Structures are given as structure tokens and as C-alpha cells.
Amino acid sequence: CETCDRYISGRVLEAGGKHYHPTCARCVRCHQMFTEGEEMYLTGSEVWHPICKQAAR
């Protein structure tokens, strides 16, 4: 997992080739988790909900 550096077994979320436990992938702006299939916007090592990234501009 990109966030906690632990092995992932079971469900995995992926953004930009990086992998996360579903509970570790959180938006840097709103701190909410991502749901399965939800779009993730990756900037460097930061993961955003698209609407949060747009609002931060």
C-alpha cells in the first residue's frame, strides 16, 4: 500500500499505478475514503476526489 507500506490482500484501489488499501486511500482535501470504482485524481503522492481538486484551484 502506497500509504501504509503494508502488503495488500483482498480489495485494492489503484490510481496512477499506485495501490492502496480501501481504508488508506483518502482525499487530501476532505479526508474521506474512496469507494470502489470511484474516480481518483493523483498529483504526485496526493490522492484527490476530482471535485475537491477542482475546488482547490
Rank of each mutant, 00 (worst) to 15 (best):
Y41A: 10
G17S: 06
C27N: 02
R29D: 08
T3S: 09
E46T: 09
G44Q: 08
E36Q: 05
C24A: 00
L42E: 15
C4L: 00
G37I: 04
A15Y: 15
V12F: 06
G16R: 08
M33V: 09
E46M: 08
M33N: 14
G16K: 14
E39D: 13
T35L: 09
E2H: 08
G16Q: 13
K18A: 05
I51S: 13
A55T: 11
E2A: 10
S9K: 11
A56E: 13
E36G: 13
G16A: 03
C30R: 02
C24V: 00
P22A: 09
G44N: 08
S9T: 13
C27M: 01
G17I: 00
G17T: 03
D5W: 04
M40S: 10
I8A: 02
T43G: 11
E36H: 04
K53Q: 11
G17C: 03
A55N: 15
K18D: 02
G37W: 07
H49S: 01
K18N: 04
E39A: 07
P22E: 06
A15N: 05
H19M: 14
G10E: 07
T35W: 02
M33A: 10
H21G: 00
A25R: 14
C24I: 01
C1K: 13
H31K: 13
E46P: 02
R57D: 13
S9C: 04
V47S: 07
K53R: 10
G10D: 05
E36P: 06
Q32D: 12
V28D: 08
T23Y: 04
E2F: 14
G10Y: 01
Q32L: 12
S9Q: 12
V28M: 10
C52K: 07
T43P: 04
W48Q: 14
R29L: 04
E36I: 05
L13D: 02
K18S: 03
Y41Q: 14
T3A: 03
S45R: 06
A55L: 09
E14R: 07
M33R: 15
T35P: 04
A56W: 04
L42I: 10
R6N: 06
R11Q: 06
R26I: 15
R29E: 12
F34T: 05
C4E: 01
H31V: 03
C30Q: 02
D5S: 12
A25I: 15
R6A: 07
G10R: 03
A15K: 15
E2N: 15
V12H: 12
G44P: 07
C24F: 00
Y7R: 11
H19L: 07
H31D: 10
E38W: 01
L42W: 12
A55H: 14
C27R: 00
D5H: 14
Y20G: 04
M40P: 15
R57H: 08
D5A: 08
R6I: 04
G37R: 12
E39I: 02
R26T: 12
R11F: 05
S45N: 14
S9N: 11
C52M: 01
E46V: 04
Y20N: 04
